Simulated scan of single mutants.
Amino acid sequence: MTDERSSFPERLKSNAVAVEALLETLLDPAVRGGEISRPANLLEAMRHAVLNGGKRLRPFLVSETAALLGGDVQAALRIGAALECIHCYSLVHDDLPAMDNDDMRRGKPTVHVAFDEATAILAGDSLLTFSFDIIAAPETALSDRQKTALVLALARAAGHGGMAGGQALDLAAEKSAPDETGIVLLQSMKTGALLRFACEAGAIIADAAAEDRQRLRAFGEKIGLAFQLADDLLDLTADAAHIGKATGKDAARGKGTLVALHGQPWAEQRLESLVAEAEALLEPYGARSEVLAETARFIANRRN
């Protein structure tokens, strides 16, 4: 991990390396207490889904929000790894032919292409379950009360009232394009819910006051909206080789996006507004929140 003087890119990279190393260890072949076996092919598919680089933005947000409020560094790293398992499970399932039918993810074959559809489904199921294993495990140095709060918040962010529900709305949008309110709702669930949890989790790990938890949750909501808006712009303007996955698919399927509804100039201006709103939420923390403010700007301006 890096110290307070490290630049944003250094901190982001350092955290990604730490998360990758932890996931590598967590997904090794050694059978843990209470487990019966770790089937080699299933474990390999899980590792294919998870150990593929990436910015690890969600775990980074967990670590940085926890650090802002004085939370335990190692506990934050483990919660970030749990969140990354949820995120990667969602990508494995979203890529399936019955969902978005993608064959490339981060420049590599998707899990159902590299293995098969049944294995991809089981890999996603296993990663979803494993995330809660990581939170509850004794190696995560948090109180039972904190673990319960994290499990509840993550379950609600990931399930039918959050990310999975957002994917259901996304599939429905292929048949009947939603209006602007529907688009915002869909995106706040499918993409925003896990980013919101990432920020709120830091406050839970730090055992912070309710006001801090609500403020960081609101910050997560703002950057979640910005993330999806930037994603929609990339889908419109970037090429697949640059971002490591297929582009232009939303337009091809007739899915409504805010970019399609209002145009690129509006979207770019709205991104600036969301970043300003996110930064305003951080003002009570002063200079200590600069890394989080830089994260908001990075999300809005990313190119992959």
Rank of each mutant, 00 (worst) to 15 (best):
M1I: 13
M1T: 09
E4T: 13
F8Q: 02
P9T: 13
V17R: 11
V19A: 11
L22G: 01
L23V: 06
L26P: 15
L27Y: 15
D28E: 15
S37R: 13
L42P: 10
L43N: 07
L43E: 05
H48N: 05
V50H: 07
G53N: 00
K55Q: 08
F60W: 12
L61D: 00
S63F: 11
E64P: 11
L69N: 08
G70W: 11
Q74W: 07
Q74L: 10
A75I: 02
R78D: 09
R78W: 02
A82W: 04
E84A: 10
E84T: 05
H87E: 04
Y89D: 01
L91T: 04
V92S: 12
M99V: 09
N101A: 13
D102H: 01
T110Y: 05
V113L: 12
A114E: 06
D116A: 10
L122C: 10
G124I: 04
D125W: 03
D125E: 09
S126R: 11
L128I: 11
F130C: 01
D133V: 14
I135R: 00
I135G: 03
P138Q: 04
A141I: 11
S143V: 00
S143T: 15
Q146Y: 05
A149M: 12
R156E: 14
G159A: 04
M163V: 04
A164F: 07
G165R: 05
A168R: 04
A168L: 12
L171S: 10
A173Q: 12
A173W: 13
E174T: 14
E174V: 05
K175T: 14
K175P: 02
P178F: 12
D179Q: 02
G182K: 13
Q187S: 09
Q187K: 12
K190M: 09
G192L: 13
F197D: 11
F197W: 02
C199L: 07
E200H: 12
A201C: 01
A201I: 01
A201R: 12
A206D: 01
D207Q: 06
A208S: 09
D212I: 00
L216R: 07
R217S: 08
R217E: 03
R217F: 00
R217Q: 14
K222Y: 04
I223N: 03
I223K: 05
G224R: 13
D231M: 03
L233N: 13
D235K: 06
A238K: 08
D239L: 14
A240T: 02
A241P: 08
A241W: 14
A241Y: 07
I243K: 12
K249D: 06
K249C: 07
A251Q: 12
A252W: 06
G256W: 07
T257Q: 09
L258V: 03
V259Y: 05
Q264K: 14
Q264E: 15
P265V: 06
P265D: 08
P265L: 07
S273T: 14
E279P: 02
E279L: 00
E283I: 08
P284M: 14
S289H: 06
E294I: 05
T295R: 00
I299A: 09
A300E: 03
N301E: 15
N304H: 15
